[in-house]
């Protein structure tokens, strides 16, 4: 199983410092919930889509929409039906299908959701996990917490591989000639052996991990040094300034003008 969320590409987003970029993401995510104009919301969606397209390619840029398609469809189907106040635009007999307020509401909800989706996804695409970890450390995350995060990423492929082998091993062991259609209840029961074996394999690695952490010096009182570091080209201050300016400009343009 691949654990990388990074997508190789080009442009400013890859140079933008992980710490400053994270701050921008936060500000933008808050901004979409403030009373900003609808045109502003859609400009933000368009801007983040175009950034995604420029950074990677068109196909990749469409990817986030695919992941939220189900929710989008539900939104379009349900929001107007349940939001009944206001001026009725479409009517089915006596039943108001959509009101003006409902459509405005739907419009804001869709744009907001798309915006948040693209902003968060872009951050993950353009920032290597190790840098995200360092950024979180910079914001005050403890070393131990950051270590848990790194170790979790270390163990995902290991447990995924083991799990796949366990499934195979049980499939071979349980293979019978007369294997008709399995009912849902059976399928759930079939999961028991594999899930149990997988959990035992995972648990067995815990004392080994604790042991190795100590053997590699976790617990020493000397201050840890760091092999990795974040380097902001042109100075961190510039990057942080930018990270505040981007949302501010957006806000000023679409809320006061």
């Amino acid at each position: 199983m691949t654990t990388s969320t990074f997508v190789a590409g080009r442009g400013f987003l890859y140079i933008f410092d992980a710490r400053a970029k994270l701050f921008t993401v936060l500000l933008l995510c808050v901004m979409v919930f403030l009373p900003i104009r609808q045109t502003g919301l859609w400009t933000l969606v368009a801007a983040s889509f175009l950034s995604a397209w420029y950074a990677t390619d068109f196909k990749q840029a469409l990817q986030p929409i695919k992941t939220i398609l189900f929710v989008l469809v539900i939104m379009i189907l349900f929001t107007p039906l349940t939001y009944r106040d206001g001026e009725v635009l479409v009517r089915l007999g006596q039943f108001p299908l959509a009101t003006k307020e409902a459509l405005v509401n739907l419009n804001i909800l869709v744009a907001r959701f798309l915006g948040i989706t693209y902003i968060c996804t872009l951050y993950m695409w353009t920032t290597p996990m190790a840098d995200i970890n360092l950024a979180l450390r910079w914001y005050g995350l403890s070393y131990h917490a950051a270590l848990v995060l790194t170790l979790a990423f270390r163990f995902v492929p290991y447990i995924a591989d083991s799990f796949r082998m366990i499934q195979d091993s049980h499939a071979l062991r349980n293979a019978t000639v007369s294997d008709g259609e399995r009912t849902g209840r059976h399928r759930l029961a079939d999961l028991m052996p594999t899930v149990t074996a997988a959990l035992v394999v995972a648990l067995k690695s815990i004392p080994h991990l604790a042991m190795s952490l100590e053997h590699r010096g976790l617990g020493r009182e000397t201050k840890r040094t760091s092999y990795r570091r974040l380097v902001a080209k042109g100075g961190l201050f510039t990057h942080l300034l930018l990270s505040v300016m981007i949302p501010t400009v957006f806000w000023l343009v679409f809320n006061t003008l």
Partner: peptide
């Protein structure tokens, strides 16, 4: 406890990830 707690959290977290995405 420090090392063991970190190990427990990390391995169980990874297990949750695998079960969320694979099973």
């Amino acid at each position: 406890m420090t090392a063991l707690r970190i190990a427990l959290m990390a391995v169980l977290t990874a297990t949750v990830v695998v079960f969320t995405l694979m099973v």
